[in-house]
Amino acid sequence: MMTTFAPSALSGYLIVSGLLLAIGFIGFFVRRNLIVMFLCTELMFQGAAIAFVAVGRYYFDYSGQVMVIFILTVAAAEAALALALVVLLHRQNNTLDADAFGELQE
């Protein structure tokens, strides 16, 4: 379909993307459970995906959607490895608390 966008519609999509980004951001900082932290990063990915696709659709450029495919790929890879590491950490300290792994300090 050769339907075109209005700029304000694009703004709407971008605001939604920004909202998801900001909320995921807040969640990443606030939650202490490691797994929920990673879920919030995935939330940020969602926001980014919406932004990519919206702007790509605005310019009828499909690179946006291609970017989303790659985001998906990377998110999957990262999730796999992150969860493997979380499992190992849990085995070591028997907790999922992010504050229990605070050795990276002065």
Binding site: F29, A98, F101, L104, Q105
Partner: peptide, 17 residues
């Protein structure tokens, strides 16, 4: 400034972002 180095990743992330 030493309390900035508290080992909590999230606080580092807050500072960065």
């Amino acid at each position: 400034f030493a309390p900035l180095h508290n080992g909590a990743i999230q606080s580092y992330a807050i500072s960065m972002i």
